[in-house]
Amino acid sequence: MVGKRVFAYLADMYIITLSQLLFFSIYRYSIEGEFKLSILYILNNYKYLFIFIYLMYFFVFEFYFRQTLGKKIFKLEVVFKNRNILSIIIRTLVRLIPVDLFLIILKSNKTLHDLLSGTEVISKPDKNA
């Protein structure tokens, strides 16, 4: 399960980064007339917007659909003890703490954002089985 969670997170990061790279490159082209795929340009000029979009991706997908696109690919789902706006805000914001992901190894498949928000990530049952 730890492996699936790590790969789901990497898939989410790929999706977020690629979509923002394309969006900001098109935006840069419309403003400056120059089309370049540059993550450094984005981070230098739009780092706060980049982080905001990163957080909103997790907030929206996990609150409304209980899974991100990466979790959907790897058949994982977020289960809430108490599904409320505060728990998803905590879950989303704690992701900014650098040691968050390393706790998955230490605490029985739970990250810091799972522990503090009262959530758990489970394998989603296969509908075809």
Rank of each mutant, 00 (worst) to 15 (best):
A129L: 15
K36V: 14
L22T: 13
R91A: 03
I97S: 04
I105K: 11
L69Y: 10
D100T: 07
L37G: 04
V99N: 10
F65I: 09
K110P: 00
F24G: 03
T92F: 02
S123Y: 12
T111K: 11
F50M: 13
R5G: 01
R28I: 02
I122K: 06
F61P: 09
V79T: 15
D126M: 11
D114C: 07
F35N: 04
I122S: 00
G70P: 06
N109G: 05
S19M: 09
D12V: 07
F52W: 05
L116H: 04
N82C: 03
I88E: 01
K72Q: 14
I51C: 07
K47M: 12
L21A: 05
D114T: 03
F52K: 02
T119W: 01
S30E: 05
K107G: 00
F7A: 10
L37N: 06
K47A: 12
K124R: 14
E32D: 15
E62P: 04
T68P: 08
E120G: 08
D12K: 07
L49F: 13
F59R: 04
I39L: 15
Q67C: 04
G33R: 01
L21M: 13
I15F: 05
F7I: 12
L116G: 01
S30F: 11
I26E: 09
Y46P: 00
G3C: 06
D12N: 06
G118P: 00
Y48G: 03
V121D: 02
K47T: 12
L106C: 08
I97A: 11
G70Q: 05
G70S: 04
N128C: 14
Y57Q: 07
L101E: 10
V2M: 14
N82W: 08
V2G: 15
F65D: 03
Y29C: 10
V79G: 02
T111S: 09
K75Q: 12
H113I: 02
L18C: 15
I53M: 09
A11K: 07
K36T: 08
L101A: 08
F80D: 02
I88Q: 03
S123A: 13
L116E: 03
V2E: 11
S38P: 05
R83S: 13
I31W: 09
H113L: 02
G33Q: 01
S117E: 01
I73T: 08
L112R: 00
I26T: 07
Y46A: 04
I26P: 00
E77I: 12
